[in-house]
């Protein structure tokens, strides 16, 4: 898994690629979320457009990130979830708590509200 971070329009954009599955890489993703929470950067847009697969551990990190941000008054939105990842969100009912977008400008505008 590769992780890229940038601040865009005041929103922290985290772009993931590859497989978001059990392993040491997940610790890096946890750290990125912790940084977002501790720096009070506010809202996070998580771009999953290049994520091939995700397992339950990967989903767990996303849920933790979402919960931690919400606790501090922030929001996390998902951008460009592939069909497979979207199916996972439906299977696990996480679709009911994640805001999902397919257009980056629209997502950023929503997170700036």
């Amino acid at each position: 898994m590769k992780i890229k971070e940038e601040i865009k329009d005041g929103v922290m954009v985290i772009r993931l690629s590859g497989k978001v599955i059990s392993g040491p890489d997940l610790m890096d993703l946890k750290s990125v979320f912790q940084t977002a929470v501790s720096k009070a950067t506010g809202n996070v847009l998580l771009d999953l457009g290049h994520v091939a697969w995700m397992d339950s551990s990967g989903l767990g990190v996303l849920v933790s990130g979402h919960t931690s941000l919400a606790r501090e008054g922030g929001r996390m939105a998902i951008l460009n979830a592939t069909k497979k990842i979207h199916e996972l969100f439906i299977i696990t009912k996480l679709i009911t708590i994640f805001e999902t977008f397919t257009d980056e400008s629209e997502a950023l505008a929503s997170l700036k509200e």
Partner: peptide, 21 residues
């Protein structure tokens, strides 16, 4: 049961659900 009640926002407990699907 994953996806129900407080388990929805748990960071764990979705493995069987994913494997079955």
């Amino acid at each position: 049961k994953p996806g129900e009640g407080e388990a929805l926002v748990s960071s764990r407990g979705r493995g069987v659900l994913i494997a079955r699907n």
